[in-house]
């Protein structure tokens, strides 16, 4: 697979119908995958000796409000053996109920790097990763209300958080002390 074009043809045959759309843009290969089949697709891309995507560079999510489906989860994979990369995207619709989070399966057991990235996605964008081993906030305090990178979140914050009275109280509430 010397060129991106060859990789594209190979992925088309390897993923089959799972690849909903596949195209090359700005020297990057982009594949849209059905969100329910993300685990299957990533496992295949990792284990196939012709692709051997052994590293997840990053994963993130984008909010395209008010477009429907609203969210896009993006996985960037890299192969240290073949020196090529691919960008996998999944469309996620926002649930009708505002309090519910959009859901997708975790890939943290396929790529270990995804563990913290999924926590960050959950923290800032409010995407629930099914069967994630430890899905809690990673950057913001545990008592934070809402997911600040979403479009409906106020630009300069809500300014009404319960910060706790002392550091010990806060740590206890966040479970940082392991008590």
């Amino acid at each position: 697979m010397s060129t991106l074009q060859d990789l594209k043809i190979h992925l088309q045959s390897a993923l089959g119908a799972q690849a909903q759309r596949i195209w090359i843009e700005a020297e990057a290969l982009i594949v849209f995958v059905e969100s329910s089949g993300i685990r299957h697709a990533l496992t295949k891309l990792r284990d196939d000796p012709d692709t051997s995507f052994d590293i997840m560079s990053f994963m993130t999510a984008v909010d395209y409000h008010p477009r429907q489906p609203r969210f896009e989860v993006v996985y960037e994979l890299y192969s240290t053996r073949r020196k090529h990369r691919v960008r996998i995207k999944c469309l996620l619709a926002a649930p009708k109920n505002e309090l519910e989070l959009p859901e997708i399966d975790t890939v943290s057991d396929i790529y270990l790097a995804a563990n913290w990235h999924e926590r960050e996605c959950y923290d800032l964008m409010g995407i629930h990763f099914r069967k994630h081993p430890d899905l809690r906030r990673i950057l913001l305090p545990a008592r934070w209300d809402g997911h600040p990178l979403r479009k409906e979140y106020p630009f300069d914050g809500k300014r009404e958080w319960n910060l706790g009275t002392t550091v010990i109280d806060g740590a206890l509430m966040e479970g940082d002390l392991g008590l």
Partner: peptide, 10 residues
Amino acid sequence: SWKMAPIVRE
């Protein structure tokens, strides 16, 4: 940051 605020207050 709001995360640092309780520590500074402490």
